[in-house]
Each structure stands twice: as structure tokens, then as C-alpha cells.
Write a protein that binds this DNA or RNA. Structure first.
Lengths: 253, 253
DNA sequence: AATGCATGGTGTAATTGGTACACAATTGTA
DNA sequence: TACAATTGTGTACCAATTACACCATGCATT
């Protein structure tokens, strides 16, 4: 827990460098061992978890702000980021306001204001992330989508909106380059789709459809080690992948 | 043009009642005589057009703010509104800042700050709208999508992003209830889709697909008066329409 | 009134795409 | 060596989309 002095300094600096009323919250998705994960932070002193977030510097583009915030929390530089909604209910930060209400006079208290939060979701390579807590958390770690904790503020809504958006985007955008390792097998990629959509897909039809998009390179090697037939390895064809990102895919799932 | 005194009053009040740094811009689409229209305002004194917009009251939900702003500009109450992106480049309001720079001291000047704008697009019934200029415009009127004026600030970007979003939404959402009159013919509805997508669609396939969605009621009457066969009239089945809005349609065009 | 023309309503064949399977091939293990 | 589990590939079937044909209607022209 920060001392009152440290809070004072934080707030004094915050008012100086950040835009008032505007915050950014990020839903960072990762994929590990066939499970979808979200990066979350656990509050000091209480069993409430929240999403990585931050504020916008006075002369900073908001995309840069989201990049900067995630760089700090994950260590990763160029992240696939997508703005998906603004959360602007006047009461959304009420709990937060109240929490810090009595610690400083109103004028000096950066947190004693209404925040309108811009939601970004990010897709990242699980293994590249080094989670780093912020000043208000004792823990920054991955949480499984099947085992989510209690959310602070409106962060459950933000999370769920992000997931809905991701599912929708699956229909007309290639997804995977940012979530999978460089090389992967078709069953591994399928597992990603199944996890995001939360439903089973037909193995053979998935393969055909995915190959039909023309964004995969089939490699010569196979993944040995399993107690079964060794599957081929694939990598994304980055050029076609980027093109597909722009032009969109055809149909939906 | 406002006098300096009037500006002073506007600014003084604005700082009092609105959140700093946050604005709302709306792309209002209407449909008239087979053409897609956008509601725009023309600046006093110069040939620069901009989108209807405004600010958020200190305790107002942002959706309410968008509603309120559009109510003032169009006279319409319950408008189909969709948030689609935030525009947060630090330089986006530079021209605006400069424009009013020397008219008031910095501290009193609500416009001398960075604005992050939340973009909404709206679909409205052309005939219900009574365009009303604001304090900075001499004109508020519909502009044809095929005959767009010079845009102020980044409003061209905002407009184009809105149009892209609308086209995308056409794939998985029913569109039309808010743009068409109560009763309409199939060719009229098709014209709407063709205008939004900016391409021709097959008359017969369009009809079958549209009917397949199950959101239309076929009426007994036909539209007399044309020099040709009288087409049937349709209306939207509001119940099914709402359901389709929630659950989404199937495939794309 | 007869005819023509432009448009609207409905049907159908061909093609494409998606779904549901079957079967062979490969790998490690019993 | 046989087996279990999994992967690679093919194919028949169904649904949806596309392309096109034909008829009906209402006004205009003569």
C-alpha cells in the first residue's frame, strides 16, 4: 500500500501530465495450453481484480497511450490493439472515487473526478509477456476465462464487451498471428478458435476453411513428441495476413 | 457571427457545465429520393462544413449526451445511435483551437483545449428531421453522399469511418427501420442497400434474402402512381426486427 | 381499345459453400 | 506386433447464393 505521501505525489504529478476525465482500459487476451487468458491486476488489500489501464498524456495520441500502458504492464512493444468501445456512465468510477475520497482534498485529488474510459482489446503472445503490477496492485497475472475473479468497477462489462467484439471480428478478420507462437499445428490453431468461440468446430472443415483463406504457410516439419501422429507445422503468411486484415475475410462461422 | 460578449458567455457557461477534453460528433444518415444523405453544418464566414456535435454534461451518460445533441439538431427524440470510434489525435482540434485562440484569454477559453471526440452514427427518417443550425453555423442541412463539401477538422475521417462501420453492420444487423418510412416497397428498400453499399444488387435475390430474414410484413396495398406495375408495400415487423438486432443476421452480402 | 414498354413478382437451374461423415496414415505404447 | 489416439485427405449431401427466364401489371402511345 502506498503511503499518503506517495499518493500525494502520484496525484500531483497525474494532474500535471494527464488529461482529465479520460482513462484507458485494456483487455489483454493471451492463449496458453489451450486456454484463453486475460491479464488482470489484483488490488492491494482487497479481493478485487481490475484490467490494466491508465491515462492519456496531455499531448499523446490515444493509440500511443494504449501502447505505452501495455508496454509497462507486459513488456511488449508492438501489440495488436483494437479500440472497441467507450464506457461513459457517470457512475462507473463511483466506487473508485469514494475509495480515495477522504485521503486528499478534492482539488488535489486526480481520482476524484469522473472518468470516461476508452476500451482497447489486445491480442498478445502469452510467452512474451512479463506481467508487471502497478502502484495500486499487489499482483499482475493471467486469469483463465473459465476461472474469472471478482471484477472491480465496471470492468466485467468492459471485459465482456471486448470478448463479444473479438468473437464478432473472428467473422471477418484473420485472428491468430498475435496469439499463436511463430510455428503451430492446425489442431493448436483450431483450439484457439474453439476457445474464443466457446464451441467445438469440425476438425476437417476447420482445416479446409482456414487453408482456403490463404494466410498460412505449411512447413515441412512436423511436431514430434505427442504419442500420436505428428501434425504438420504452419506459420502465418504475413503478407497475405496483412492483406486479409485490410480487406476482410468472406463469411462467418 | 457571435459577438465577443456572446462568446464569452458561451465559454463561461461551457466550462461550468461540460466535461473538459471530451466532445461528441455525430454522423447522421438519412435517405431521400434514392440518395444517401448526411446532416452537416456550414460554418459562419467560411466554406467549411462540419458534423453535428457537442459536449457532455458533467453528470450525463455519454449516450444521453449524443441523444440530446441530436434532439437539438434534428428535433427527433429516439434515434438509432451507435458508437463507432474515438478520435483522439492531439492535433485533431488544432485548427479549431487556433481559430478561437486570440479571442479570449486561455483560462476563459473552453475551446482552447484538446478534445477527444466520441463518434456516433445515427440512422434517421429523413422526413422527421428539422435541421437546426447551432451558434457557430449559418446553415444546417442534408448533404448528398455523392456531393460532399469540404470538411472541417478531421470530420471527413469521422464521416468515412462511420460509413465503413455502417457497411460492415449491414452484414450482421438489420438496417432500414430507422431510414425508411413506415411503408415502403421492396425496390425502395433495395435502393437503400445499394446506396449504402454503393453497388448494384440483384432485384430477385435481394427480395428473397430480405424476406428470408423474416423481419418484413407484406401489406395488401400496392404503391399506385408509377408508370408501371404497382409494387407491394411492406412494413417492418418490429418484434422480429428487434430480435434480429440482438441476435444478428447470418451471412454477408 | 390495342399495343408497347418499363417495371414488379415469382420460379428454377447451376454453382458455390458448408456440413457430416469415412477411411487411410502415422506415432508411441502395451 | 497390435492397438489406441490423433492427423491428413476425400467425398457425398444439403443449404445458400447466383444467374437467369418468364409472366403480370399499369400507364403511354397510337
Amino acid at each position: 500500500m502506498l503511503t499518503k505521501q506517495e499518493l500525494e505525489e502520484f496525484w500531483a504529478e497525474a494532474s500535471e501530465i494527464y488529461l482529465n476525465h479520460i482513462s484507458i482500459d485494456c483487455v489483454v487476451f493471451g492463449f496458453h495450453e489451450g486456454q484463453m487468458k486475460v491479464l488482470m491486476l489484483k488490488s492491494n488489500n482487497e479481493e478485487a481484480w481490475y484490467l490494466p489501464g491508465g491515462f492519456v498524456l496531455k499531448k499523446e495520441p490515444i493509440e500511443k497511450a494504449a501502447d505505452r500502458i501495455l508496454k509497462i504492464r507486459t513488456g511488449i512493444d508492438k501489440i495488436f490493439l483494437q479500440q472497441f468501445r467507450v464506457f461513459g456512465d457517470p457512475d462507473r468510477s463511483k466506487i473508485h472515487n469514494d475509495m480515495y475520497k477522504d485521503m486528499l482534498p478534492k482539488e488535489q485529488n486526480f481520482f476524484d473526478q469522473r472518468f470516461i474510459s476508452i476500451g482497447y482489446y489486445a491480442l498478445v503472445d502469452f510467452f512474451n509477456v512479463t506481467p508487471a503490477p502497478d502502484d495500486f496492485s499487489e499482483l499482475c497475472t493471467w486469469r483463465d476465462l473459465n476461472d474469472l475473479p471478482k471484477f472491480q468497477l465496471d470492468h466485467r462489462l468492459i471485459f465482456e464487451t471486448a470478448l463479444d467484439t473479438l468473437r464478432l471480428q473472428l467473422n471477418y478478420q484473420p485472428i491468430g498471428y498475435n496469439l499463436m507462437p511463430k510455428e503451430f499445428t492446425m489442431p493448436e490453431l483450431q483450439k484457439l478458435y474453439e476457445t474464443i468461440l466457446d464451441k467445438k468446430l469440425d476438425r476437417r472443415n476447420f482445416q479446409r476453411r482456414m487453408l482456403g483463406f490463404g494466410i498460412l504457410n505449411k512447413l515441412e516439419q512436423t511436431r514430434k513428441g505427442g504419442a500420436h501422429k505428428a501434425p504438420y507445422l504452419y506459420s502465418f503468411d504475413l503478407e497475405n495476413y496483412q492483406a486479409a486484415l485490410k480487406e476482410g475475410l468472406k463469411s462467418g462461422w
